[in-house]
Nucleic acid binder design. Sequence first.
DNA 1: CTGCTATTAGTACCTAGTATTAAAAGTTCG
DNA 2: CGAACTTTTAATACTAGGTACTAATAGCAG
Lengths: 187, 187
Amino acid sequence: MKRSKKERQQLLKTTIEENPFITDEELADRFSVSVQTIRLDRLELSIPELRERIKHVASKQLDEEVRSLPIEEVIGEVIDIELDQSAISIFDVKTEHVFQRNQIARGHHLFAQANSLAVAVINNELALTADASIRYHRPVKLHERVIAKAKVLSTSEVRTTVEVNSYVGQEQVFSGTFKMYRSTKDK
Amino acid sequence: MKRSKKERQQLLKTTIEENPFITDEELADRFSVSVQTIRLDRLELSIPELRERIKHVASKQLDEEVRSLPIEEVIGEVIDIELDQSAISIFDVKTEHVFQRNQIARGHHLFAQANSLAVAVINNELALTADASIRYHRPVKLHERVIAKAKVLSTSEVRTTVEVNSYVGQEQVFSGTFKMYRSTKDK
DNA sequence: CTGCTATTAGTACCTAGTATTAAAAGTTCG
DNA sequence: CGAACTTTTAATACTAGGTACTAATAGCAG
């Protein structure tokens, strides 16, 4: 099986990409050339040695582990609030909020922004969501800024209905109606 | 700084756990003992050498990449899944999930568990929540274990309805109906 | 045949170890 | 105190999977 230098180097690159754990010796075997040739190839292609490759993959893994730990606690920043009436928060979609494959924000983050805003707008120590009906109007992408606007529709002694609409620019991306319990003892 | 053998070995273990990239020499320095002592310690504790540790971390990374998308992006741990039919996940409520004041889990975590399970159960590259209707039956407290059960109710070419019910023990705490978009090209 | 590139071979050196033997230091017990 | 034991350190030989360098050889083109 005769390959030109270029062919071999191209193949070398993809082979290592798909299996970074392969040694020069195995590669030499596979391509029926000497180990030295493989090393020259790697040199020319600036492909690091096995151990460095593995180290690189491992670091990536550690990064992922740390980045995926703090799942979500910050759910947007409240920029305006009138208790028992309305509230506005902004939420910037970052890499940790999106599906890796299509860069679309996972739905529960938009929900979380809206839900926590609904909780915040209620002037009460204890506010809990009883039920909610929501709708996603269009997908939100990485790096977009979502502005959620909450509006209190009705209030009784124990129940409050809050409507939340979220926008990216002028475009609506999310809407929801939250029925909230509120504790009887006011602050 | 004098430590007994036991103390040193205990510390060695946790040190390596938190930074698997550390060499015996660095450890010897850190604990003011010889390299040989560190090696005896590793031997006694069955801790593999640096390169093996790195290799192990790197393999984990490759596994994740291959085992692909839906599972790692689920909130809670999926313990059973039958694609396009049903799925179950567990979610342990920790301190970071609750309101400090009353130790009650924030609603969006329960929503996130249910929503991501609904996404995972759909055997499709692209699944997005279109709208959802949910209800919180009773508050969930710190350290409780929530079991979410997703069931696919109906499927058309582009839409799937998933029902999710979540329980703590025998008691239902959450229910939701999720209407999902699925991409037209099936896997 | 002469040049040129590509390949192979060989050597010294490196890191981060294992495995083994042996000596030295520290500690406990009688 | 000193023998017996554990713990630590040292020294040596060997390993994988390389780098860096020099030198020899093979293949082919003009």
